[in-house]
Amino acid sequence: MPARQISPRRRLRDVISARRAVERSRGDAILHGLCVLAGLIAGFVVVEIAYQVISGAAPAISTFGLGFLGHTNWAPNLNHFGAAVMLYGTAVTSAIAMLIAVPVSVAIALYLSMLAPATVRAIVGPLVEMLAAIPSVILGFWGVIFLAPFVQKHLEPWLHSKLGFIPIFGPGQTTGLSLFTAGLILTVMVVPIIASLSRDLFLTVPSELKEGAEALGATQWEVIRGVVLPSTMSGVAAATTLGLGRALGESIAVLSVIGTGSAIHSSLFLTGNTLAARIAQDIQYPVSKLQVHSIFYLALILLVFGVVTNLIARAVARRYDVHRAFV
C-alpha cells in the first residue's frame, strides 16, 4: 500500500507541470500578452499624468518655489500667483462636507445594514448610490438657483443668530454663494460614497458577534457602539478618506456656488475659492504663460492630495475584504 502512494510533493509538481502545459498554448500566450499590454497602457497613463502635470508646473515651481503655497495673491495681470486662498477654501469646504457627511453617512449605512427591512434596503440602497450619479454641473446649477437662496434667506441668518458669537458664523452676504454653500454641495456628493462603502463594511461584521452581544442583553445601539463600530472603525476611516479625496478634487459644482472670492475670510458665509474651482475658472482664458504654469502647479497640488488620500485609504482598507464594485 505505501508503495502505491505518491508523495504529496511529487503530486503537486505534477499538477503544476500540467498547468504549465495548459498555459503554454499559443492562444493563452496571445490573451496573456493582450492583458499585459492593457496593463502597460494603464501604467503608462498613470506615469504620463504625473509627468505632464509636473513638467507643466515646473516653470511656476522654479519661479515661486514653495512660497506659492503661502501667498494669498492670485493676480494674472501682475503675473503674481499664490495658492493660499485656494488651499484655505479647499480645506474649509472639505472640512464642512466631512463634518456633516461622516455622521450622516454612517447613520445611513447602519440603517441599510442593520435596521431596514429587506425590501426597503433594496430600494433605498440604490437610491443613495444614485445620488452620486447626479452630474456635478447639474448639482452646481441647482445649487445656484435653489440652494444658495435658501441658505441665504434661512440657514445663514439662523446660524448667525444662534452661533454668531463664533467668528466663523459671521453675518451672511446677499447672494448665498459662500464657502458654506459649497460645503453643503460637497456633502451631497460625498455622502453616497461614504454611505455605500460603510454599509458594505458593516455587512462584513460576523453575525455571531452581533447575536452574542444581543444574547447578553445589549440594545441595538449598544450592539452598534460595542461591536459594529469598533470592529469596522478603520474601514470607516478609509471610506471617509476616499470621500475626502472626492471633496478635495471637485471643481465644477464648487465653482458654481462658492462665489469665486479672492481673499481669506474667517466667516463661512463669505465667498472663497478652491484649488479645483480656480483651475476650472482660469483654464479657458489664461492671460500669460506663467498663469498656465501656475494652474498646472495647482493641479499638481490636487494630484498629490488625490494620490495621498487614495494611498491612505488603500493601506487601511487592505485589512478588510470589502470590494467596492459599483460605487
Binding site: 496593463g39 501604467g43 499624468i49 471637485e250 494652474i295
Partner: peptide, 26 residues
C-alpha cells in the same frame, strides 16, 4: 505586475477629474 497594476488603478481613480483634464490639455 499584478500588485503594481492594482496600485496603478487605485491611483488613476484617485486623480481628480479636473486634473485628468489638465493632463489631456498638456
Amino acid at each position: 505586475l499584478g500588485n503594481a497594476l492594482r496600485l496603478g488603478l487605485d491611483l488613476m481613480q484617485g486623480v481628480p477629474s479636473i486634473v485628468v483634464g489638465i493632463f489631456v490639455l498638456g
